[in-house]
């Protein structure tokens, strides 16, 4: 009798729970926007590197009966470098997938940290892109942004983005090197020197680019000036060029920034901090296009990643460098 009394209510409870769990939640149409509103997305992915842009898309809209957009502005916590701007054109994507611009005002003006666009067309919705060029001052710090839209009814809408950590890395792209001519590479300067300039900057030359058709495994090489003479055949080093730099060959690491936006791989600060360069040699032979080399300078001041953009059998190559200060 007692069992029956328990079993029946328990059964009812289970049935009710099952019914409730299966209740379909109806979609409700959200309330229409009744005032000035805004939204923002960050379009740039990957590490934030000084001299490269951070791009945002800032959208703002208000009901037509409330008026029109008057201005849009962005305040960065650290003033952007030259080239920072807020688009004065609103883009929409047409049926062919092409972004089509519609001019909404005069080109933006930037004063210190503030970049502003004033609308000169009658519109109540717009999406403007903000291009922030990361300044040297921001290296190793973080930067945040405040987007503000103002409408003709005096209302403002604000959207905060960030903070975003700015990488300690420095980047230099598309440096042309050539066998026996512009062959001396400085990681500190992120530059390529000829023999004369290398002699002047002897203490900064970390690598020598050379090309030898034979043996066939030698071809394009980056060799430290301090390496065994066997790896510098026929090379006369300028006076004082004698640093011994550690190198580690890599393949299939096509950093997006170094490869001119071709791939979806990013080298970031953490790769340099976790890099194992113990017992690495001071030469890298047989480099191919899209190969790379991790580098650690002899004074352990810098680590770098050198990406080979292209090679030429005539003994030239184009390289790009990401450098991390330890």
């Amino acid at each position: 009798m007692r069992n029956k009394n328990i079993k029946f209510p328990a059964l009812i409870l289970i049935m009710l729970t099952s019914l409730l769990a299966c209740t379909k939640q109806e979609y409700t149409i959200p309330d229409p926007v009744s005032q000035l509103t805004n939204d923002c997305i960050k379009r740039t992915i990957g590490p934030s590197i000084v001299s490269l842009p951070l791009e945002f898309a800032y959208a703002m809209a208000l009901p037509k009966i409330n008026g029109k957009l008057v201005s849009a502005e962005v305040e960065a916590s650290i003033a952007g470098a030259s080239g920072t701007f807020l688009e004065h054109r609103s883009f929409y994507t047409n049926s062919s997938g092409v972004d089509v611009p519609v001019t909404i005002g005069t080109p933006s003006t930037t004063v210190d940290k503030l970049t502003k666009v004033t609308f000169n067309v009658d519109t109540n919705a717009s999406t403007l892109r903000y291009n922030y060029v990361i300044p040297e001052e921001a290296r190793g710090k973080s930067v945040s942004f405040t987007f503000t839209a103002t409408s003709s009814d005096g209302k403002t809408a604000t959207y905060k983005m960030g903070p975003y950590a700015i990488s300690k890395m420095a980047i230099k792209k598309n440096l042309a090197v050539s066998n026996g001519v512009n062959a001396f590479i400085s990681i500190e300067d992120m530059a390529v020197y000829n023999a004369t300039a290398a002699a002047t900057n002897a203490g900064k030359v970390d690598l020598v680019y050379l090309y030898r058709a034979t043996p066939t495994t030698f071809t394009h090489a980056l060799v430290s000036p301090g390496a065994d003479a066997a790896y510098l055949p026929g090379v006369t080093l300028p006076s004082g060029v004698n640093r011994s730099t550690k190198l580690r060959k890599v393949f299939n690491l096509q950093d997006r920034n170094l490869s001119n936006l071709q791939y979806g791989i990013y080298v970031d600060d953490i790769d340099f901090t976790q890099l194992d360069m113990v017992d690495m040699p001071n030469y890298a032979l047989g480099l191919r296009a899209e190969a790379g080399v991790w580098v650690e300078t002899t004074d352990k001041k810098y680590r770098a990643y050198i990406f080979v953009n292209s090679i030429n059998a005539a003994g030239t190559a184009v390289i790009s460098i990401l450098r991390y200060t330890l």
Partner: peptide
């Protein structure tokens, strides 16, 4: 192995 191979790594 190829000439110049770094056999330490």
């Amino acid at each position: 192995v190829n000439p110049g191979t770094d056999l330490k790594n």
